[in-house]
Design a protein around this nucleic acid. Structure first.
Lengths: 347, 347
DNA sequence: GACCTAAAAGACACCGGTGTCAAACGCAAG
DNA sequence: CTTGCGTTTGACACCGGTGTCTTTTAGGTC
């Protein structure tokens, strides 16, 4: 028990114990090459003995740059955020970096000011922007202005591919719809994500494309707007499933809305997947918790976290993340998860 | 566009512009009382003009304490973590504090080492431990040893009430079970949380107590172990609902397991709530996404975040958190949320 | 006007590291 | 045993703030 007043040993203590100057200790810490093996060993030993850990604040000051990266998010799916975060942590695990996680309130009109204050105060080296906030160009501009590097996570490449990690939402949706069509579905409903969201647009585009490919066209009656919320799914379900000739399958732009549609199906006594197939997107916990379990698309969100970190601060990850470039690019591909909510159109 | 090379103005720039010494500027920043109104105004003006923001790293170094608090969590419910985090951020919003969020891997045997490394490296003023990791006494001991204050969040007061924020799981469960009994239920099943978890124990205690109060006793056959996971709920459901005389109501120690039980009910064609009432705990997103929507208990988790921050670092929140002591203690009471999964025992 | 005192402001060292540049060292060649 | 040169190491200033102590200033007394 060292007690609450415990004071961390400093670089001076290490220097004294090892019988060298503090600068030499600093060299060892920073893996300078101009150090004799003998001294290095002695210093390392002293560090070990004292349990010395460099003070990150002091380093930040001296280096004129701190070792923080920020994760800005407003994704309603908490699990997604956490998984991404986990990926980032995996990536920076052996580095000196620390991660600041910051939820932002998209709705608020002082959002930009809040973020500005945050960035000015913390001065992270870089920031990672999770969708949907990542689609906000003002935010990107703010980062530019403040000299904070950033990586935007998205569902499709943005213009500046350099700052962007993206999945292939469009392609998976095409693939998934093809499967639906192959199963025999012709009357397929679509529940869209919120206007102004790139992911929503990408998913819709893929949907239309797959239909067109099969010579099908989306009937207006089978189209429902939405906002990624459960309630919107319920509304969409009410609309589509009250039709005289309801669709035999519904593609929902995310899992929450799919759960809403599922509820309406249950209430109306429509069996899933017998009479109605439902597909979601995100592979959120909800997808497995509802019944029947939802076929959905899994975002490689954790891998994206790893990648995003590597893209954001390659210079800090170099020594350890050696496998960075050998990594399979395919890891960033979203995949279709088949569960129990899809079947051929029933009788 | 200030450009990536933009350099933050320092205290020296402010001092020069205001025509005073840097120490005087420091006094203004830190609201020292020995400052003439005139100088204060001049300095504030200079700060405003330059857009000066004190470098937190430098302050941390000079103050010999940084302005970080950490949130350590391993709660599987991401929404819970995020809500708590939001509460903490609300509380520290106007302070100089920043929040480091850190998932910890309970399973790993190097968990303690990981946390130790993290704490030694970041040296936060304090840490908030979310359950279930908050129940780990070794972790608390580690904090003590490293001189890091901490607050444990729990479902029942621990010995050192000083370090603890807790909800009243036990009492709510009693209340909820009374309602079940009042509705006419006599054959009530129970799905437990994982062994060694305080929350699980508290909930079970409350359950037994309510039964005893009504002169009932829990039949062994109606008792199922669990681990807060969906799969455990499914297993429990299989067990209880395969009985010749299945329970008419099942209390599940969390929502995920309740979702599992719900699935089995659906599969077996048992109607909910007609033939079976189900109650969950946590009010996770899952509770509303499944069908029928789950009656459950809501943890005042966001408020707990606020409280935890106030308890952890009252000395940093003083100036702004004026309403701290006027706050309604009742805010920390968990409440029963009635939805559609409960009804009187049907035929 | 000289003197005293409290309030206000400043000088300077220091927090714990790193950058720069000069000094000390080791070893081979002359 | 010098000299020369590249390798190691150290001295010292500095990053951007705060603590301590001293000096200056303002205002009131006699």
């Amino acid at each position: 028990m060292t007690g609450p007043g415990a004071k961390q040993p400093t670089i001076n203590d290490v220097a004294a114990l090892a019988g060298v100057s503090k600068k030499t200790v600093s060299r060892v810490i920073n893996r300078s090459e101009f150090i004799s093996e003998k001294t290095r060993t002695a210093v390392l030993e002293a560090i070990e003995t004292l349990g010395f850990v460099p003070n990150p604040q002091a380093r930040a000051l001296a280096f004129r740059r701190n070792f923080l990266i920020a994760l800005l998010h407003d994704n309603p799916n908490a699990q997604t955020v956490l998984n991404f975060q986990q990926g980032v942590l995996d990536a920076i695990k052996d580095s000196d970096l620390a991660l600041l996680v910051r939820p932002v309130d998209r709705g608020s009109d002082q959002m930009l000011d809040d973020v500005r204050t945050f960035l000015e105060k913390q001065r992270p080296i870089g920031a990672m922007l999770l969708p949907p906030i990542s689609e906000n160009d003002d935010l990107a501009a703010l980062c530019d202005q403040l000299g904070v590097r950033y990586v935007r996570i998205g569902s499709a490449p943005l213009d500046d591919a350099q700052h962007c990690i993206s999945s292939n939402d469009h392609d998976v949706v095409v693939e998934v719809c093809r499967k639906l069509i192959a199963l025999g579905h012709r009357d397929i409903g679509f529940v869209r994500g919120p206007a102004g969201f790139r992911s929503a647009a990408e998913r819709e585009k893929g949907f239309h494309e797959a239909l067109a490919e099969a010579g099908l066209k989306l009937d207006d009656a089978y189209y429902a707007p939405g906002n990624y919320r459960y309630a919107a799914g319920v509304e969409a379900g009410e609309k589509l499933l009250s039709l005289a000739k309801p669709p035999t399958a519904i593609f929902c732009s995310n899992d929450e809305m799919a759960a809403g549609v599922m509820r309406v199906a249950h209430e109306k006594g429509i069996s899933v997947p017998g009479q109605l197939s439902i597909i979601g997107f995100d592979d959120s916990p909800t997808a497995t918790h509802i019944w029947p379990a939802l076929s959905t698309v899994r975002w490689p969100i954790r891998e994206m976290g790893v990648r995003a970190a590597q893209l954001l601060v390659p210079d800090f990850l170099g020594p350890v993340g050696k496998a960075a470039d050998e990594e399979d690019p395919a890891a960033l591909v979203s995949t279709f998860i088949e569960r129990q909510s899809v079947a051929p159109p029933g009788r």
